[in-house]
């Protein structure tokens, strides 16, 4: 576990492309710069898409973890 505290958890499990990115974008809108969001998804596309999303929107990708079917992505709002 890296050095950050999770400010918000978004459970996007069960949702398919593009909804995990859409929900993440909407959730980050409500958050402050520097806060960390934890996104849970079981959509295999999102494992690739969310890091690309973070890169293209300028938010920082902290970590991608995979446990079974669940992929957990940590992002810091920039």
């Amino acid at each position: 576990m890296a050095q950050y505290t999770i400010d918000k958890t978004l459970d996007a499990r069960g949702l398919s492309c593009p909804m995990p990115s859409v929900k993440t974008a909407l959730a980050l809108e409500q958050m402050e710069i520097g806060q960390v969001i934890e996104v849970l998804t079981d959509d295999p596309v999102s494992k690739k898409d969310l890091p690309v999303w973070a890169h293209s929107t300028g938010n920082e990708l902290l970590e991608v973890r995979e446990e079974g079917k669940t992929i957990t992505i940590y992002l810091r709002k920039a």
Partner: peptide, 11 residues
């Protein structure tokens, strides 16, 4: 709408 919402999510 998939393209539209994805693009909107990217700002």
């Amino acid at each position: 709408f998939v393209i539209a919402t994805a693009a909107a999510s990217m700002g």
